[in-house]
């Protein structure tokens, strides 16, 4: 049942009762935490889209001076892609019940994400050393704002990653942690796409 046909029923008619009553009552046939995550991602999409629009709005102002793209930023992007790939690998391994692979790849994915966060920190250090202060131009300010917001969200994801790691260490089975791994993977992919979008925006201008 699509959500549209669900909201066009006529609840006052007795005739539809028996059909309605046999149906499971959840609107989406996926685990509840995934529905929750999707809604969270929708809210986060608004956040990042509005930030990007604000960025674009500032670009047309007269004293916008774009800052250079440090090489490290490309490397970080590559690391984040690898991290996302690792989590996807862990996700399918968990689905196939391969606990050994899940442990290795899931752990590696998180370590790569930490490497990305450290890399982002180094980039901002480099830029500050080169004199690109947040207060000197809004292009700089936006760079720190965007990377900062993105890094904060990834740090939040690291909490979920850490909790899943604890479950793995405590010896949960593959089917018990499959959902946690899947949630992490979805979140990672989302943040990867957000980063690719924002990175393209920043590099192309």
């Amino acid at each position: 049942m699509s959500i549209f046909s669900q909201i066009s029923e006529k609840p006052w008619l007795e005739s539809v009762d028996n059909i309605i009553n046999m149906r499971p009552s959840n609107a989406f046939h996926v685990p509840t935490p995934i529905v929750g995550l999707r809604i969270l991602l929708a809210a986060m999409t608004v956040l990042f889209v509005l930030t990007a629009i604000s960025y674009a709005d500032h670009m047309r102002l007269p004293n916008w001076r774009p800052l250079p793209d440090p090489f490290l930023l490309w490397l970080n992007t590559l690391i984040l892609i690898t991290s996302s790939v690792a989590l996807q690998w862990a996700r399918s391994a968990a689905r196939h019940g391969d606990l050994g692979a899940v442990k290795k790849v899931f752990f590696a994915g998180g370590v790569l994400a930490i490497a990305f966060l450290l890399g982002q920190f180094l980039v901002s250090q480099q830029l500050v050393d080169m004199g690109y202060y947040a207060s000197s131009n809004s292009a700089n300010a936006f760079f720190y704002l965007i990377t900062g917001l993105h890094a904060l969200h990834l740090t939040g994801g690291m909490v979920a990653w850490g909790r899943t790691i604890t479950k793995l260490l405590r010896g949960f089975s593959a089917s018990q942690i499959a959902l946690s791994v899947e949630l992490c993977a979805i979140y990672w992919h989302f943040l990867l796409f957000v980063w690719l979008g924002l990175f393209t925006l920043m590099v192309s201008t």
Binding site: Q6, I7, E9, K10, S25, N26, T32, V35, I39, L40
Partner: peptide, 23 residues
């Protein structure tokens, strides 16, 4: 946002049997 996720997902996913969206 933490609370809001609860309100939305509870309505979508935790309704009693027979409680369709249009009921």
């Amino acid at each position: 946002t933490m609370g809001g996720l609860n309100y939305v997902v509870t309505v979508l996913q935790a309704r009693a049997r027979g409680m369709t969206l249009m009921r």
